[in-house]
Amino acid sequence: MKTPFEALVRTHGATVLRVCRAVAGPDDAEDAWSEAFLAALRAYPELPDDANVEAWLVTIAHRKAIDQIRARRQAPLPTQELPEDSRAAPAVGGWQRDLWEDLATLPPKQRSAVVYHHVAGLPHREVAAILGGTPAAARRASADGIAALRRTYSGELR
């Protein structure tokens, strides 16, 4: 028996939003969130009843967030002026821009491992199921990613 989809949105909406922000950044996160839940709604009736719903949603969200980044890169720049180094931009509304930008510079596997484990809160076992490979490899990718972030991120990282 399936849970009504609205319960998925209520239970996992915040996690999906965190994943979208971590991958796509704050400006594109909301569109990625909407695209992710719409895609999930479309596929939901065929999802096996014993599937890990959160891992499934996080995977879709991650994919949609990457689509948003790609779409933005292909879009023409609105002005001729080169954008200033965004690291110099001040935090807007409490948002620490440089952390997600540092995340974006990680190799894809490390970034995925960091986002799935530290942002979405999935155990390494689940991360490995999504990325392929062993739980130990997922743990290592996540640890390497965090180590790289510690080197580049200017703020304090717990």
Partner: peptide
């Protein structure tokens, strides 16, 4: 800050707005 703090203070309001928008988008997409 930690990675799990990658939320903004107004998350509840944001999620309510996104959920309402999702209902509309779902209806439009049949």
């Amino acid at each position: 800050m930690s990675l799990t703090d990658l939320g903004l203070p107004d998350d509840d309001a944001t999620l309510r707005r996104l959920s309402a928008r999702l209902g509309q988008a779902a209806a439009e997409a049949d």
